[in-house]
Amino acid sequence: MAARSMMMTSARLATLAVALVLPWLEAAEGAPWFWPPISGDDPYCLTWRVMVEANNAKGWRAVPAQCVGYVRGYMAWGQYYRDVGAVAEEAAAYAAQVAPPAGGDDGRDAWVLDVDDTCLSNQPYYQVKQFGAYDPVAFRAWASREICPGIPAMQWLFQTLRSRGFRVFLVTGRDEETLGSCTAANLAAAGFSGYDRLIMRGALYRGQSSVAFKSAVRRQLVEEQGYRIRGNVGDQWSDLQGDCAGDRVFKVPNPMYFVP
């Protein structure tokens, strides 16, 4: 019964996500939001996506040309949101097992959540670009608009973690100087309010890999500030690797781009 309930919740979250996110695609550079669904699974592209999620495909700069339509269909027509919903439910079930005890909480049990394509969706931006190579100038312009929609399953997980007494830290590779205020505003507008801290990449960590930057942040939380990272959620394996990664990590699917 529990498994069936979780599947039903994933389906509801997927339906809600499609309804909420599709109109946002229209906001990205005036592109039409409607794309016809892809019929069936392309065997090559399905295999490629599995390789990406298993972290066996590394260092790729753009979605293979023959898989652009496949990725567009996966991201926009329900399966992506069902997959994210399943991750959120597994994370919530685990959180229920390790939640700090009522009355005996020292306030040090924490979760770390990534921001881009974990909490906030950049699907409209990448879809317009046909999932091409990362362009830092164009992405900064997109993020500055503060219109990234929140991912419904992650909104639900975020509120669930907070309600269970965990401290929640949002850690992102976005540049603090250029995107700090707009990222905070976008998160608030998308329903992510009440987190303990938004930690962004400052001048000290510019040019460093995501693994190095996020490891340093987590080490500070654990070794200097005494937090226990019970869970860690991200869309890239580089969010989840390195030092003090957490007692358990949860990978959100993302076949749109790769961050080393």
Rank of each mutant, 00 (worst) to 15 (best):
I199W: 00
I38T: 14
G73I: 07
G242E: 06
Q241K: 13
R72C: 13
Y44F: 14
A189I: 00
E89A: 13
M154E: 10
Q127M: 12
V128M: 11
E224T: 09
L187V: 10
D114Y: 06
G194L: 04
A133H: 03
Q97G: 09
E224I: 00
T9V: 14
Y70V: 06
V252Y: 09
A143H: 07
V18L: 05
R167N: 10
S121V: 04
R218Q: 06
R61D: 13
L46T: 13
V71C: 08
I38V: 15
R145K: 15
P43Q: 11
T118C: 15
P253L: 09
D117P: 04
M75V: 14
Q66F: 00
V233K: 05
R228G: 02
T178V: 10
Y80I: 01
G165V: 08
V21F: 02
A96L: 13
R4K: 10
A91V: 07
Q130S: 15
S238D: 09
K251V: 10
A93Y: 03
L113Y: 13
G165A: 08
L161W: 04
W77D: 14
W156Y: 08
C67Q: 10
N56W: 13
D239V: 06
S238F: 03
W24G: 00
Q79T: 12
P32M: 07
P23M: 09
C45R: 04
L120N: 04
A31W: 03
A2M: 11
D116K: 09
W156R: 12
P43V: 08
G246D: 02
R61E: 15
I38A: 14
Q208V: 08
N55L: 03
F166E: 05
V71F: 03
A3N: 09
Y94I: 05
G69L: 10
D175E: 14
A92K: 11
Q236E: 10
L240V: 04
M7H: 11
A185F: 00
N56Y: 11
G85Y: 04
M1T: 12
D116N: 15
V168P: 01
T178G: 00
G150F: 01
M7A: 15
C67A: 09
G202Y: 06
